[in-house]
Amino acid sequence: AQEYRALYDYTAQNPDELDLSAGDILEVILEGEDGWWTVERNGQRGFVPGSYLEKL
């Protein structure tokens, strides 16, 4: 798994998404072809927009 940093804040719109704060460090589990990536942070897993992340 790769570590990424959130570039922007994101507020989850659905229960299966995660909130992001700019600067958060996340582990990317799966890069979805639809642009939604499965990530894990502090034991929580959910979808976030891949375009909001940069690889560390």
Results as ranks from 00 to 15, higher is better:
14 N>P: 01
23 G>K: 01
41 R>P: 01
31 E>F: 09
42 N>H: 11
17 E>L: 01
43 G>F: 05
10 Y>Q: 01
22 A>E: 12
26 L>K: 00
54 E>P: 00
28 V>G: 05
35 G>P: 02
10 Y>K: 02
4 Y>R: 03
5 R>Y: 13
37 W>N: 04
33 E>P: 14
46 G>A: 03
51 S>V: 11
10 Y>S: 01
46 G>I: 00
47 F>W: 10
30 L>R: 15
5 R>D: 01
22 A>C: 13
47 F>S: 14
24 D>E: 12
35 G>W: 03
34 D>T: 11
48 V>Y: 00
47 F>I: 15
3 E>D: 09
12 A>C: 03
29 I>T: 09
9 D>N: 15
37 W>C: 14
42 N>M: 06
30 L>Y: 13
11 T>P: 04
18 L>A: 03
44 Q>F: 09
49 P>V: 02
5 R>P: 00
13 Q>C: 12
15 P>D: 10
8 Y>L: 11
25 I>G: 04
42 N>I: 04
1 A>E: 15
36 W>K: 15
2 Q>K: 09
5 R>G: 03
19 D>H: 07
3 E>H: 13
41 R>T: 07
32 G>Q: 10
16 D>K: 15
12 A>V: 01
52 Y>M: 10
39 V>M: 03
32 G>Y: 05
29 I>K: 11
16 D>V: 07
17 E>S: 04
35 G>L: 03
31 E>M: 09
8 Y>M: 14
1 A>W: 03
22 A>P: 06
30 L>Q: 14
51 S>K: 14
36 W>L: 14
39 V>H: 00
4 Y>D: 00
10 Y>G: 01
41 R>L: 12
31 E>Q: 12
56 L>K: 03
13 Q>R: 12
40 E>M: 09
25 I>W: 05
51 S>L: 11
52 Y>Q: 05
8 Y>W: 10
23 G>W: 01
36 W>A: 05
9 D>S: 12
51 S>Y: 12
37 W>T: 07
3 E>Q: 14
25 I>A: 08
43 G>S: 07
26 L>F: 05
47 F>G: 05
46 G>D: 01
24 D>G: 03
2 Q>P: 06
19 D>C: 11
49 P>M: 06
14 N>L: 08
45 R>Q: 13
18 L>W: 02
